[in-house]
């Protein structure tokens, strides 16, 4: 594997047909890279939750995968509207998803908690009216 590989995926707001495709591609990339199945599983869950957060809650954004021999790093960045209370959003079971979104199987209030649960490093920054940036990584050699 080269020292570092970067892949970027645009994520459209409200597109539930394409939503989850970036996570699927990321899983395939990690499989091809020969990473342990536990790392692939954790990264796939993080990527999916981050991607669907952009689809459901933002006005659009992107998901980036940085892959190097030590880490699988995932960065999700969107263009707003931002999270009013990040600590509340981190609580398991808390969700602002609409009834229409819940009818699709989302809105469990586990998205960000699932990301934190599967990450070795978790950082989130959000500004109302500007957007949200999520940076996480998994230590490949620890999992």
């Amino acid at each position: 594997m080269p020292n570092s590989l970067t892949y970027s995926f645009a994520v459209e707001a409200g597109d539930f047909n394409k939503g989850g495709d970036a996570a699927g591609k990321i899983k395939k990339i990690l499989k091809l890279a020969g990473l342990p199945s536990t790392v692939i599983r954790r990264a796939a869950i993080i990527a999916y939750e981050a991607e669907m957060n952009i689809v459901i809650h933002s006005v659009g954004g992107a998901l980036r995968l940085n892959l190097n021999p030590e880490r699988v790093e995932l960065i999700a960045k969107d263009s707003g509207p931002g999270i009013t209370d990040v600590s509340l959003a981190m609580q398991e079971g808390y969700s602002t998803a609409s009834d229409e979104i819940r009818a699709l199987g989302f809105g469990a209030g586990m998205g960000l908690p699932n990301i934190r649960h599967n990450a070795d490093h978790f950082a989130i920054e959000s500004q109302v009216g500007v957007g949200t940036t999520l940076e996480v990584y998994i230590d490949v050699n620890v999992s």
Binding site: G105, F106, M110, G111, N114
Partner: peptide, 9 residues
């Protein structure tokens, strides 16, 4: 389950 995030967790 009918909740995707619960399944993922």
């Amino acid at each position: 389950s009918d909740l995707i995030s619960d399944i993922l967790r």
